[in-house]
Amino acid sequence: MQRRSIAFWLGAVVFLAAMLAMTQLVRNEYPFFAGYVILQFVVLAVAWTILGGYAGYVNFGTNAFFGVGVYTAVLLVKAFGAPLPVQIATAAVVGSLLGLGVGLLTLRMRGIFFSIATIALAIIIETSITNFRFVGGAAGIQLQRPPVTAPFDSYVKMLFFVQALLVVIAVAITRGIQNSRIGRGLHALRDDELAAECTGVPTLRLKLLACVISGALMAAAGAPAAMYLQYANPDSAFNLNYSVSVLAMALIGGTAHWIGPVLGAILLGATQQLLAVTISSEVNVLVLGVMLVLFVVAAPKGVIGLVQRQPKRRGGSK
């Protein structure tokens, strides 16, 4: 265990150093534009897995948390001209509160009812923002970027690095949960909620915790998007595509281990970035749909499952 932790943190430091070096060495801004989006999806997919994968509660409200992150940042910029770290931290707090609320309201529901309830929440929040004039209403709002901080020479590069930091934070938290008794408790309640309760697992408390952490991370991932696009409108900030993309990424990678959503987000995120440039955004959605269907039908345990399949003893069974 100990040795693995050292390896993990070493890997994290190397990753961040590489990302930082990239921002200093690469002149062209485009890789950072695309990379930012992929990193953002890594955070979202990893955060989603805490509740959707470990606990088995399929959250379709990723867009609600993401959008709330975006609009928390918008509001802070518009009202106080708050700096980026404050935007992200506040978004995380708001996201965790929203997670708590969502959890209290919906976590007693099972299966598809929970999923539908999360879609409903997203639409209700979006509608409220649409009717909130101060942040631009339905038409959206333009934002001015403040001057960039050294050592970065462009704002997008800085955002890219910030998102890389969020990736490390999200993965570290998710990994911590997975390796702790909280993770075991979540798995137990996913397998059988009543049996878990009767074995001493405080299921409601664990689910709330998962919802709060997951929500905080998702909102934090959304906060820098306002400055990334220099624009926000409810329609795109709360787009259902976020929910389905993130779900697809987690399922494609596999949800048994934190590496699953990371792989899934990189795989699908990179494919989408490539397609958006080379063909069109519609094909993007098509690829999303096809990949989702293909993986849930043919590889229910995702990429992780495909890799782990070999050593299973009962040969050839699904």
Binding site: F60, L247, A248, L288, G289, V293
Partner: peptide, 8 residues
Amino acid sequence: AFFFGVAF
């Protein structure tokens, strides 16, 4: 997830 994929 499957039916969402189909919808998309």
